[in-house]
């Protein structure tokens, strides 16, 4: 691309708020989005799931008149939904199948663990501000949590922990209120994938002030094993770590504090405005292929 010096879409007014719309399945992506309504930024989350009515989604966007649109899993939105929309569209891709039609996004962001050739940038999943908590001392017996669908790999790790300690395993469908309640009620969380990547639950648990016990993270995004989280490499190690953390919860208090500090870098109110600002600068400098652009 050649450098240019004009924004291909109407930009936010100098004295008014940036209107930022998020589109995606709310139960999955609202925990990663920004919710803010002040003089600087106003946000809207449009719930859209695979097979949903693109007309409804487009109508909601048109009524909001956003200055930028962030679309989670853009491949789940019908092609052409954003045709003629005079706002930059940032597609957030979590798996290769989510890649949208060429004209449906100006730029693509790959959320790890997805590796997407040609992506504008790659980053871990941000965490909505509402899920950040101070690290509190554990009163009583610590409680354990795993978020995500079971797989053979995960169950191989979790089986003994579930049998011994009543680990809550939530598979799907929690809305933001339920997720907050569940996070508040648990102190130890697991991350198990069996493959490289940093799933969205990693920053979520750190932000909630929980002790994170995880398989090795790759990339680590600056997280340090043994300092801000506990790393385990096989099921017996996970059982041992869980047992120790349950027996001596205060032993890992500082690790939780460190993890909580690291999570600040992924706070939605910090990440999204900066990312959108950079998107607008990037579009101003390098333009876009979308036909909706000026």
């Amino acid at each position: 691309m050649n450098a240019r010096d004009d924004l291909p879409y109407p930009g936010p007014p100098g004295d008014g708020p940036l209107r930022l719309a998020f589109v995606g399945r709310s139960t999955v992506f609202a925990p990663a989005a920004l919710e803010r309504h002040d003089g600087a930024v106003r946000t809207l989350f449009v719930d859209h799931r695979r097979g949903g009515d693109p007309g409804d989604t487009r109508a909601a966007l048109d009524a909001f008149a956003p200055h930028a649109v962030v679309v989670f899993r853009p491949g789940a939105v019908a092609p052409g939904t954003f045709a003629g929309l005079r706002a930059p569209v940032l597609g957030v891709v979590t798996q290769p199948a989510d890649v949208p039609a060429h004209d449906d996004a100006d730029r693509l962001v790959a959320l790890t663990p997805c590796r997407l050739p040609g992506a504008w940038r790659s980053m871990p999943t941000p965490v909505a501000d509402r899920f950040f908590r101070p690290v509190r001392r554990v009163r009583g017996v610590p409680r354990m949590l795993f978020l995500g669908p079971p797989t053979a790999h995960r169950e191989r790790y979790l089986l003994d922990v579930k049998h011994r300690f009543d680990c809550l395993h939530a598979v799907f469908g929690l809305d933001a209120d339920e997720l907050e309640r569940v996070l508040d009620a648990h102190h130890i969380a697991f991350n198990l994938d069996g493959e490289p990547g940093v799933e969205d639950r990693v920053p979520l648990h750190l932000a909630a002030g929980q002790l994170l016990i995880t398989e090795p993270l790759a990339p680590g995004y600056g997280l340090e094993s043994g300092l801000d989280h506990l790393e385990v490499s096989y099921p017996e190690e996970l059982l041992h770590a869980a047992t120790t953390a349950r027996t001596y919860p205060d032993a890992y208090h500082r690790m939780r504090v460190r993890g909580r500090q690291k999570a600040e870098r992924l706070r939605a109110s910090r990440v999204w405005p900066a990312l959108v600002r950079d998107l607008l600068l990037d579009l101003r400098a390098f333009g876009t292929h979308r036909s909706a652009a000026a």
Binding site: R49, G51, K162, D166, C167, L168, H169, A170, F172, D175
Partner: peptide, 15 residues
Amino acid sequence: VQEEFDIVHYAHGLL
């Protein structure tokens, strides 16, 4: 059905 509706699903440990 989960594609269309938010069916809350707990696998274990709900007590």
